[in-house]
Each structure stands twice: as C-alpha cells, then as structure tokens.
Write a protein that binds this DNA or RNA. Structure first.
Length: 352
DNA sequence: AATGCGGGGTG
DNA sequence: CACCCAGCATT
C-alpha cells in the first residue's frame, strides 16, 4: 500500500472518537494547565510547548504563572523581565510574541473565539490557533502537530514520503479535520496528542494497549514504526570562536539591537567576529578557557572561548560599538543569556 | 521548499 | 551521533 486509505477511518469516525476520548478521560496525565484551566494557562502552555517537550516546560510554566498570573500582569511587565523568565527555554521570540499578544489582548473589545481570529497574532500559526480555540472555546478546529502526523500516518499506513513536517502537515490536515469530534474538539485534540506522546511514540509504540488499535492499518499490514516517512537532512558542522573579556569588574557581552531579526535582546559571550579590530584578533591556544559542542537544529557547532586582554585601542573601539556591553559581574545574573551561554558564563566567573 | 531559531531527551 | 519535540516566520 503506497498512500494508505483514510476512508475506512472516516467511516468509523464515531467509534474512533469514542474509543479515543474514553481512553483520554481515564489515562490523561495530570498537567498544571489542565487543572483549573483558563484561557491564560492554555495560551501560555501552547506557546511554551511549541517544539518543546512537556517535561521541559513543566518547571517554566509553574514559575511563569507565579511571575505573571494573568494577561494583565504579563501585559504590564517589562520586556527584559519577560525575557528573563524565559531564559533557558529557547526560541526566545516566543516570549516576545506572547508578551505582545498579552498587550494586544487586554486592549481588544472582544477576545477571539475561533481559530481564524487567533491566527492573527504574531507567533500563532495553524497549530496553536486550533489548539487555543478548541481547548478554550470548543471551536471545531483540528490540531496537526508532530504527534497527529505520526498517528494519522500509522492509522492509514500512509507511506507518502515527506520532505519535512510542513509538507506532512498539509497532507494530513484534511483527515485530521474529517475525524475531529466537533462536539468535543478540545478533548479530542488533546487526546490525539496525548496518544502520540504516551503510546503512539516514534520508537516502540505500545500498540497492545492502544485504544484505537482496531482502526490502525499499519498494525495489520506492517510495522507502525515505519510511518511516517520523513526524509532526513544532513547535519552541517560549524565552528565559532568567542572571547571572554574582563575589565574593571565587568564582562563584555554582545547583544543585537531590539530590531534585529535574530538574537534580539539576548546577550551572548561575544563571537570573535563581533569584536571591532583593525587587524584580525589572534587568539592564543594558551588562552583557551573552554570548548564545547552543541547542536542547533541540523547544525553541529564547536564553540571555543578564549580569554582576551584588550589593548587601549581595542577598548576604545569596543566602547563605540552599540552592540557591545560591559556588564558588571554582580549584574550578570540579571541579564538574559541563552542556556549554554548562561552556563559558560557562570563557570568562567567562578574560575577568577 | 528550505532555513533559522534553542535546548533537552532519547535510542 | 542522530532524530524528535503541543511550530512559526521568513525567504
């Protein structure tokens, strides 16, 4: 079977939905945004959960709710504090977009109740719009995330090769919408994702306890693990040299201006390339403080940090650069660095 | 269709 | 090391 046949699943929609939702009612995980649910909790959790696993989000969510208990509090908060509370969670534009949304929402005469309305906010795409509208307002809009793609590909034994998740999303959206329980869209959507997260996992799916196994064509005809078929991309290697410059009790950090498309408002240990210098800075291997490797999307980055003593001429140039900032050691805790930079900075500070 | 964005978990 | 995760915006 090349492309699977969704018709039998669509015909069995009623039984499928009943089985799925009964299972969810009984086996759903206890999650903080599910107890005493509110629109605010739903919106915050959906932003945090974009491309981020539940277990990672949990501690951030709890802290966030204490710092910003509702839209009004978030709307009034300083951008820097908002970013600080997001520190380590990654994808920082989510924090800025969530903050912006809060400010816009408290000014709106009427809160949108349909997915289409939520789509208008920056940082909300098809998935998040459907999730918020269905969970908070019972809008009959189906979510399609990585879990749903995996489940639908397996249910229909669909061997279509996809170049990426976006292509798969386009392919499965009509089916997801066709089998949505429009009477109970919020729970239905969450049940699909819960199934994908806890039973219909990428590796070793727990088919024997699956509530919809009898609807699954991949169990009958092949291995569920074989679906969906996603092409993989080659990883690229990159090296970055960074410099650790301490001067008069302060550390030099690099921060792009707020208008920058990337890394806006986020401090980092300066890459060598960000240091203005007439002649190329020569970094001495004796001054290597730290060397780490990390992955970002499909990149493998080797980062080295070198100690550097700035000359008077270099200091002068540094002080003219709007993207370079001296941050007093005691103040370092207060600025927002990405997760790895935070760890490196703390480790290097301790060493002095 | 491809790429950048972060960080952590898992096999 | 590779892939994946309650994705989105931009090109």
């Amino acid at each position: 079977m090349q492309h699977g046949n969704p018709n039998s699943l669509i015909e069995a929609k009623a039984r499928f939905c009943t089985a799925l939702e009964s299972w969810y009612a009984k086996h759903q995980r206890k999650l903080p945004w599910r107890s005493k649910p509110s629109l605010y909790k739903t919106v915050v959790s959906e932003f945090m959960l974009q491309q981020t696993q539940v277990s990672t989000v949990l501690p951030y969510f709890e802290r966030w709710l204490k710092a910003f208990p509702n839209f009004e509090a978030l709307a009034k908060a300083d951008e820097a504090l908002v970013l600080k509370r997001w520190e380590g969670l990654g994808y920082y534009s989510r924090a800025r977009n969530l903050h912006k949304l809060a400010k816009e929402l408290v000014q709106l005469p009427k809160t949108p109740q349909k997915a289409e309305g939520w789509l208008a906010f920056r940082g909300i795409g098809p998935y998040t719009a459907a999730a918020i509208a269905s969970i908070a307002f019972s809008d009959a809009s189906a979510v399609v995330d990585g879990n749903v793609i995996r489940i639908l590909a397996r249910l229909t034994a669909d061997a279509t090769p996809f170049s990426d998740n976006t292509a798969a999303l386009k392919h499965f959206s009509p089916l997801a919408q066709a089998i949505l329980d429009e009477k109970n869209p919020g729970d239905h959507n969450q049940a699909m994702m819960e199934l994908g997260a806890t039973l219909c996992t990428k590796h070793k799916p727990l088919c024997t306890v699956c509530p919809v196994m009898q609807h699954c064509q991949s169990v009958k005809h092949g291995k569920p693990e074989n679906f969906p078929k996603l092409k993989r991309k080659a990883t690229v290697k990159r090296t970055v040299e960074r410099v650790w410059i301490a001067h008069e009790g302060a550390i030099l950090l690099h921060k792009k201006t707020a208008k920058a498309k990337r890394l806006a408002d986020l401090f980092e240990i300066p890459p060598q390339s960000a240091i203005p210098s007439k002649q190329a800075l020569t970094l001495n291997s004796d001054d290597l403080l730290l060397k780490k490797s990390r992955g970002i999307s499909n990149e493998r980055i080797e980062e080295s940090i070198y100690a550097l003593k700035p000359s008077a001429a270099l200091l002068k140039k540094i002080n003219q650069d709007p993207e370079l900032h001296w941050v007093l050691k005691e103040e370092l805790e207060r600025v927002t660095l990405s997760g790895p930079h935070r760890k490196w900075a703390n480790a290097l500070l301790k060493r002095n």
